[in-house]
Design a binder for these strands. Structure first.
Length: 473
RNA sequence: GUCCCCAUCGUCUAGCCUGGCCUAGGACGCCGGCCUUUCAAGCCGGCAACACGGGUUCGAAUCCCGUUGGGGACACCA
């Protein structure tokens, strides 16, 4: 058995797209499962569109979702000589030829063909001209087979047959000396000994163009696998107008990388009825057989649900760690602040089942920072009034008389007061909730007190009591 | 236009290969209820799909053909 070698080969022309992450993910999963090699290769032969910033964005994105590569990043622009020498080999072997048609001429002919309702393919004008030493600028074309069939046995789609008659002679070396995509991939995949080429569906029709190049160069043809596309709600290919498509945008929106990974893998792959998978489980259970053959619509609602599941199920320490930078960004935490990690974890436990994202969690957690209560005006006006003041005062007195803090003891005291005064729980709970958190919605009252601690609970009660007593009725 | 891919609830999907176990299962969302000191979470229940038309067969979501629909490709982009 030869070792599995797969790759992710993005072109650095923007941020790392969700679809790209999923492609990388399937490759990575397979590599890890087979104890193979995962290669990162940057396809930057289009100098006008490639940027170093995009390369950094791709790397940052992959790192965020935890996809580590074993080789690379290779950059195609650093391998130009390799493509040129292999192109020359084809030229020498009579499997390629110089083409002196200009880009403008080709464009014009293509338009003309389209207007006539014909395929916009290259007409083969220079194929038999035997141009040996072009005087001006010229591109090198591959002599594609014109008869017979090219059969691709796709890992995902199965056997696909293409008539070679549909193919035209593609350019492998541009007149500026740079290789085109269909040529550089072949040379790289061959030279890097890639065993499985797994990429998006949109490359399916490139395959019968690439296979003959492998053969002409005398390289073994790798296995191919074409992943179905990800669509937007309108079933059109997922793009910016459908919302965020950059993975890092999801980081900023408060998503956990593990949730993103789980969602993306399940979008197009399944394992019976199972929805949630630990990463180790994905590596173990992943297979090509269960990869869907049809395109899938990206569903932000389900991602959100899954994120909530991960927030609830992850260790509070993990969540707290991911939350910390957002707390700092929100000004709730300073770098100097020595907030104990245990307290942060406790806070996460307090609010985690009501926050679906880390961004939401920041909102939930706000009331527990700072020495004073910040009231929501409407809440305070409704619940902190002269009529609720006497009860708040009685409760405060009872709490003050209790030594230290114990959740059980304080809860017991609270309930006793409710009972003695013949109140309903909610009649006291809501004013106290507002007194402590400034809001009408919060986690359980006694959990709130525990996180606040004795002193802050008492001082907030006092502060709110003052407001209640002085409020106009 | 030509070529290629695809087709189960609104969405992600199980089932399809190896026809009967499918009165088509799960999940998200939605609706209703329960729980309840608020908001959530949780639990219970409900709505909701085999694109269409032919065939093959005792029997088809499952096999075959066609139609329709959707997507992709046809660059000196990747």
């Amino acid at each position: 058995m030869t070792q599995v070698r797969v790759r992710f080969a993005p072109s650095p022309t923007g941020f790392l797209h969700i679809g790209g992450v999923r492609t990388a993910l399937f490759n990575w999963l397979y590599a890890r499962q087979q104890q193979g090699v995962f290669i990162l290769r940057i396809e930057d032969t289009d100098q006008s569109r490639s940027t170093d910033e995009s390369i950094r964005a791709i790397i940052e994105g992959l790192q965020w979702v935890g996809l580590d590569w074993d080789e690379g990043p290779y950059r195609q622009t650093e391998r130009i000589e390799l493509y040129r020498s292999h192109a020359m080999k084809l030229l020498d072997g009579g499997q390629a030829y110089w083409c002196v048609c200009t880009a403008e001429e080709l464009e014009a002919r293509r338009k003309e063909a389209e207007a006539k309702g014909l395929s916009p393919r290259y007409d083969g004008r220079c194929r038999n001209l035997d141009i040996t030493r072009p005087s001006g600028e010229a591109a090198l074309r591959f002599k594609a087979p014109q008869t017979g069939q090219t059969v691709v046995d796709d890992l995902i789609k199965g056997k696909i047959v293409f008539d070679n008659a549909v193919l035209d002679d593609l350019i492998i070396l541009r007149s500026n000396g740079y290789p085109t995509y269909n040529f550089s991939v072949v040379v790289d995949d061959a030279l890097m000994h890639v065993t499985h080429v797994v990429r998006g569906d949109d490359h399916l029709t490139n395959t019968p163009r690439q296979v003959p190049i492998f053969q002409a160069l005398g390289f073994p043809v790798p296995q191919f696998g074409h992943l179905p596309m990800i669509l937007g709600a309108d079933k059109a290919r997922l793009s910016k107008r459908h919302g965020a498509t950059s993975v890092m945008a999801y980081k900023e929106m408060g998503y956990l990388p593990e949730a993103m990974v789980n969602y993306l893998v399940r979008l197009g792959w399944s394992y019976g009825d199972q929805e949630l998978f630990a990463r180790s489980e994905l590596i173990e259970k992943f297979n090509w057989k269960n990869v869907q053959t049809s395109a899938a619509v990206f569903n932000p609602d389900k991602l959100l649900w899954m994120n909530a599941e991960y927030i609830k199920a992850s260790s509070p320490e993990t969540v707290a760690q991911a939350l910390e930078p957002l707390l700092k960004h929100a000004g709730l935490l300073n770098d100097q602040d020595a907030v104990p990690h245990e307290w942060l974890a406790q806070l996460v436990i307090l609010v985690r089942e009501r926050a679906k994202t880390l961004v939401e969690m920041v909102e939930w957690v706000k009331p527990y920072f700072g020495e004073t209560v910040v009231w929501d005006e409407a809440a305070a006006q409704k619940f902190l009034t002269p009529s609720t003041a006497p009860m708040l005062r009685k409760l405060l007195e009872r709490f003050v008389s209790l030594p230290g803090f114990s959740k059980q003891a304080w809860e017991e005291q609270f309930k006793r007061l409710v009972e003695e005064e013949g109140m309903k729980m909610g009649q006291l709970a809501q004013p106290v909730r507002v007194a402590l958190t400034g809001r009408t919605a919060s986690p359980g009252l006694f959990d709130v007190m525990e996180v606040l601690g004795r002193e802050r609970t008492l001082s907030r009660l006092r502060q709110s009591l003052t407001r209640a007593e002085t409020a106009s009725a």
